[in-house]
Design a protein around this nucleic acid. Structure first.
Length: 619
RNA sequence: GACCCCGUAGCUCAGCUGGAUAGAGCACUUGCCUUCUAAGCAAGUGGUCGCAGGUUCGAAUCCUGCCGGGGUCGCCA
C-alpha cells in the first residue's frame, strides 16, 4: 500500500515546501496582511537559523523539515512554540537546551516578538507583542471570507469523485455521508489552493440497470390499466418508478405492452436511467451538493472503447494474462469451480491477488470498466485522484490503486477515502432498511425533515472512518445535542451584536472597512486577545485538514471557536463593562465590533466551506 | 484463512501526522437570566489511552505480536 495515509514522507514534504516558499512581502504603502502566523514565524525561525549558521554557532546543512511552529498546549507558555532545538540537536551534535539558548536569543531580536523562554526538554516559547493580534484582526476584516485561503495546492488539478450511487432509485440516507464528506473535502481543497473538479460516476452499464428497465416496464403496463399484480421478486418495487412508467405509457401507448423484451429493453433502460439521474440530482441539490462532471460508464467508457484501450495498454506491458485463481481460504464458496480468466497482474502493484477483467459471458467486469474510467480521468489531466467510497468497498481499494499505478506509470496517485456506515436509529432503535423491499429512508425525507444544514454538519462530526449513529429522534429535537445549532448560534449572536449597535448608535458605520480603522488598542482583555489568537489558527487548521483530507477537523474547530466566543459573550451578562456594545463608549464599541466581526467572518467562512448556512438569527 | 477500519472518562467522540500536566459533549453535582437571544456560561466528579514488547531525548500517535468489535473476500456494482 502506498496511499497517502501510509506514506510518512508525504505530509512532511508538503509542509516544508509550503513553509519555505512563504516569504512575507512587505509593501510600505499597503497593510501587510497577516494570513498564517505560524507559517510566517516558521520563516522567522529559518532566518534565525541561517544567521546562527553564518555566525558559525551552528553547523551548516541542518534539516529543519521536522521543526514546527505551533500554538503551545498551555497558553501560559506563550503564543508560539517551536520544537526546533529538539529536532536540530542531533545534527548539530549539541544538547537540545544549548541549541534552544542560541535560537531563543536570536528569535528574541525579532521586532514582533516580545520575549522568548526555554521550557521542558528544549522547547522555545515565544510571546508575541499584542499588536500582532490587532494586525490580524485588521487583516481578517480586509480579507473577509478570503481569510484562510491558502496556496498549499499550488493550483494543482485534483479530481474528487463522490456519491456515484447507482442510478436505480432515489438516494437513501446511507449515501449522504459520502456526499457530504466528498463535497466538503472538495471545498476544502479549493480553499487551500487546488483546482478541484467534482465528479460523479454513473454505473449504468451493468445488469442492474436491466433490472431497472424491467421494473419500469412493469409500471408501464400498470399505467396502461393492466392488472399486473405485485412487483415480481427481484425487481425494484419502489413507487418512484410509477411516474416513469406512466410517462412511457403516455408517449408510446400500448406499443410495448406485450412486445418481447428485446424490443423495449434499451429504450426503457435509457429512459429509466435518465429519470433516476434527474431524481438523484434533485436529491443532491436539496443537500447542497452539485457535481460538475457526470461520467457515464456506458456512454463515456465502455461505449467509447475505453476499456479495450486500457486492456490493450496493459497487454502491451505484459500485465494481462489468462489464469486460474485460487479460491479464498477460510471460506468455502459452494459453487466454486476453477476457471481460466483474463487477469490483471495487480500483485505487481501491491494487491494481494491478480484481478479478473472479463466475466464468463465475455462482458467486462465492473473493475475493468472502473480501471478504464480512472485512466480516463488521468488522461483528462488529473494526476491526483480522490475517490470517496463506502467502507463496504474497502476490499476494492488495492486493485484500483494498482490499476492507477499501472495505467499512469506511477504518475497519478489515488487516495480512497472510505466512509464508515451510518447507523440509522430512532430513539436508539435501529431502523430497518431494504432497498429491494422498498422500505428505506430516502435522503430527501431526512433533508426535508431536519434540513440540509443539520444533515451536513452531523455527517462531519465524526472522522470518516468512524461509525456514525444518526438518530432521528435526536436530530429532530434540534436541541443542544446538535452541534450545528451551537455553531450557528455563534454566528447569529455576532449579527445580534451588530443589530444592538445600530439600536444604540444609529449613524455608526459598521462596515468591515470602517471597523478595520477602529482603534484596536482598545482590544486588550486577555479573553479578547485569546479569541484573536484562536482565529489565527484557522488557516493552519484548513491546511492540516486538507493535507489529511479530513474535513471533519474544520467542524470540530468551528465548534471550539463558537465555544470561546460564547464564553466571552456570557461574561457580558455578569459584567456589563465587558459587553461588546457600550452605549456610553462609541470607540470601544467599534473596536469590539471589529473583534466580533472577525469571529463572524471566520465562522461564516468555515460553515460555508462545509455547506452549512451561517444563520442570521435562531429563534 | 487473508486484507482494511476501529478500540481514549459511565456513554458518544476529538486529539493539530512524535511533543510539555491526554481534551470536549452528554450524564451526574453546584452556581449564573430586572436578558448585548440562557439554543448560552462558570466550577466540580470522572482515565492502567485494549494488552505486551520495540523504536528515541519524548509514544494515545510510529513498528511487531496478541485480544476484542465491524467490514470485505472470482464472473455484484
Amino acid at each position: 500500500m502506498a496511499t497517502t495515509r501510509t506514506d510518512p514522507s508525504r505530509g512532511r514534504r508538503l509542509h516544508r515546501r509550503h513553509d519555505r516558499s512563504f516569504r512575507p512581502k512587505r509593501t510600505p504603502t499597503a497593510l501587510h496582511l497577516l494570513m498564517n502566523i505560524f507559517a510566517e514565524f516558521h520563516a522567522v525561525l529559518a532566518k534565525s537559523l541561517d544567521a546562527l549558521v553564518a555566525e558559525g554557532k551552528l553547523p551548516a546543512g541542518l534539516d529543519l523539515s521536522r521543526a514546527v511552529v505551533e500554538p503551545p498546549r498551555d497558553i501560559t507558555h506563550g503564543d508560539l512554540s517551536t520544537n526546533a532545538a529538539l529536532v536540530l540537536s542531533k545534527g548539530a551534535k549539541m544538547k537540545p537546551r544549548d541549541v534552544a539558548e542560541l535560537l531563543s536569543a536570536k528569535l528574541a531580536a525579532d521586532p514582533r516578538i516580545a520575549g522568548t523562554d526555554i521550557a521542558g526538554p528544549g522547547f522555545v516559547n515565544m510571546k508575541l507583542k499584542p499588536e500582532i493580534w490587532r494586525d490580524l484582526a485588521r487583516s481578517i476584516l480586509t480579507l473577509g471570507e478570503k481569510f484562510g485561503d491558502g496556496t498549499m495546492g499550488g493550483g494543482k488539478k485534483v479530481n474528487v469523485e463522490y456519491v456515484s450511487a447507482n442510478p436505480t432509485g432515489p438516494m437513501h440516507v446511507g449515501h449522504c455521508r459520502g456526499a457530504v464528506v466528498g463535497d466538503a473535502l472538495a471545498a476544502l481543497l479549493e480553499k487551500t489552493g487546488h483546482d478541484v473538479t467534482r465528479e460523479y460516476y454513473i454505473n449504468d452499464a451493468g445488469a442492474q440497470v436491466d433490472v431497472l428497465a424491467r421494473s419500469v416496464h412493469h409500471r408501464y403496463r400498470e399505467a396502461l390499466g393492466e392488472n399486473v399484480g405485485p412487483v415480481a421478486e427481484g425487481l425494484y418495487p419502489g413507487d418512484y418508478l410509477k411516474p416513469v412508467g406512466a410517462a412511457l405509457a403516455t408517449e408510446f401507448g400500448t406499443k410495448y405492452q406485450t412486445a418481447p423484451e428485446a424490443e423495449w429493453l434499451t429504450l426503457f433502460r435509457e429512459r429509466a436511467i435518465a429519470a433516476m439521474m434527474d431524481l438523484i440530482r434533485e436529491d443532491l441539490k436539496a443537500l447542497g451538493v452539485v457535481h460538475k462532471v457526470f461520467s457515464s460508464e456506458k456512454n463515456d467508457i465502455v461505449g467509447k472503447g475505453r476499456v479495450n484501450e486500457a486492456i490493450e495498454y496493459l497487454k502491451s506491458r505484459d500485465l494481462v494474462y489468462t489464469g486460474v485463481l485460487e479460491p479464498p481460504k477460510g471460506m468455502k464458496p459452494e459453487d466454486w469451480e476453477p476457471r481460466p480468466q483474463m487477469l490483471f497482474r495487480a500483485t505487481q502493484f501491491g494487491d494481494d491477488v491478480d484481478r479478473p477483467l472479463a466475466k464468463s459471458d465475455g462482458t467486462w467486469t465492473y473493475f475493468a470498466a472502473d480501471m478504464a474510467y480512472h485512466l480516463d480521468k488521468y488522461r483528462r489531466g488529473f494526476e491526483r485522484l480522490i475517490d470517496v467510497w463506502g467502507a463496504d468497498h474497502g476490499g476494492y481499494v488495492k486493485r484500483v490503486d494498482a490499476a492507477v499505478k499501472a495505467l499512469s506509470e506511477g504518475r497519478a496517485t489515488l487516495e480512497v477515502k472510505l466512509c464508515q456506515m451510518v447507523n440509522l436509529l430512532d430513539k436508539g432503535e435501529p431502523v430497518k432498511m431494504s432497498k429491494r423491499a422498498g422500505t428505506f429512508v430516502t435522503l430527501r425525507d431526512v433533508v426535508d425533515e431536519v434540513g440540509a444544514d443539520v444533515v451536513r454538519f452531523v455527517m462531519l462530526t465524526r472522522k470518516q472512518d468512524q461509525h456514525i449513529d444518526f438518530d432521528f429522534a435526536k436530530v429532530r429535537e434540534q436541541s443542544k445535542d446538535n452541534p450545528v445549532f451551537y455553531v450557528q448560534y455563534a454566528h447569529a449572536r455576532h449579527r445580534s451584536a451588530f443589530r444592538q449597535a445600530k439600536a444604540n448608535f444609529a449613524d455608526l458605520d459598521t462596515s468591515d472597512a470602517a471597523l478595520a480603522k477602529a482603534d484596536l488598542s482598545r482590544i486588550g482583555d486577555a479573553d479578547e486577545l485569546a479569541l484573536l489568537r484562536m482565529l489565527s489558527g484557522y488557516p493552519r487548521i484548513l491546511e492540516a485538514a486538507a493535507e489529511a483530507s479530513e474535513p471533519h477537523r474544520v467542524a470540530f474547530w468551528l465548534y471550539d471557536l463558537a465555544s470561546t466566543f460564547h464564553a466571552l459573550w456570557t461574561r457580558g451578562n455578569a459584567d456589563p463593562s465587558l459587553r461588546f456594545v457600550l452605549p456610553e463608549d462609541r470607540e470601544t464599541t467599534l473596536a469590539r465590533l471589529a473583534l466580533v466581526r472577525n469571529v463572524g467572518i471566520t465562522v461564516a467562512s468555515g460553515l460555508r466551506l462545509l455547506g452549512v448556512t451561517p444563520a442570521e438569527e435562531l429563534r
